[in-house]
């Protein structure tokens, strides 16, 4: 990479190909790679998730976006009569920002064909991601900027309204996660923190980035894929 953690258009295209290889193993995530001429413009990933509404209490707070593995949760199902289910369709787009030179995650969600509001986004995407964590993404995201880190903006390629995770912190996040492999002579690792950093290449750049950014809004890559598909090299 020429200017890690920033990506050029060409590097983004290579990284996008690698991510798509990985995504082809995820049956629940339908993905496409979009080109303009022969230039890679973005990757789209579509995910469908039923939202179960409990009949006892129809308040929106009780709605649940089905996550993988929910079906196994028998005890919950007995108590809660699962009933008219709404369908959430979430479309994620990964685009290279022409300004920040890092990938940006744009997304739209429609619940039964109605476009989601910011509250819906927090309720059905962010809070669901929080269920499996100790630290709240919601608090983290809301603490940034005027609105929080999730803003509205125009898709740089399509020109239509999308939600997006603001990219101004992305470069720092990627740099914190790891370093680029250098071909210099191996040295004694005196700096302990350095040795704990991962190695980032064009092969795993978008995968690592998505692991950090996507998980805040319900886009999860299966964990085993992170390690077992030969990405350790």
């Amino acid at each position: 990479m020429e200017s890690f953690p920033y990506l050029t258009q060409r590097e983004f295209a290579t990284a996008a190909k690698h991510l798509c290889e990985l995504l082809s193993h995820c049956s629940d995530l339908e993905h496409r790679l979009w080109l303009l001429g022969n230039r890679t413009t973005y990757i789209s990933i579509r995910r469908e998730a039923p939202i179960h509404q409990s009949t006892e209490n129809s308040s929106a707070e009780e709605d649940e976006l089905a996550m993988e593995g929910d079906q196994e949760n028998d005890s919950e199902c007995i108590v809660r009569k699962v009933s008219p289910t709404k369908l959430a369709i979430i479309e994620y787009h990964i685009v290279l920002s022409p300004v920040y030179c890092v990938p940006v995650l744009y997304f739209n969600m429609a619940i039964d064909s109605t476009p989601a509001s910011l509250d819906d986004v927090y309720q059905y995407l962010v809070r669901q991601s929080d269920l499996s964590r100790d630290v709240s993404w919601e608090e983290t995201l809301r603490a940034v900027g005027v609105h929080g880190a999730i803003s509205q903006g125009e898709h740089p390629v399509l020109g239509t309204p999308f939600w997006f995770i603001h990219p101004c912190e992305t470069a720092a996040l990627v740099e914190n996660w790891g370093t680029v492999e250098t071909h210099s002579i191996p040295r004694l690792d005196i700096d302990d923190s350095h040795s704990k950093k991962g190695i980032i290449s064009l092969q795993n750049y978008l995968q690592i980035w998505l692991g950090m950014i996507g998980s805040t809004v319900g886009l999860h890559l299966p964990v085993e894929d992170l390690t077992s598909k030969g990405y350790s090299s």
Partner: peptide, 9 residues
Amino acid sequence: SPQSSQSML
């Protein structure tokens, strides 16, 4: 890199 189109870098 001769391929790079991004002058920002």
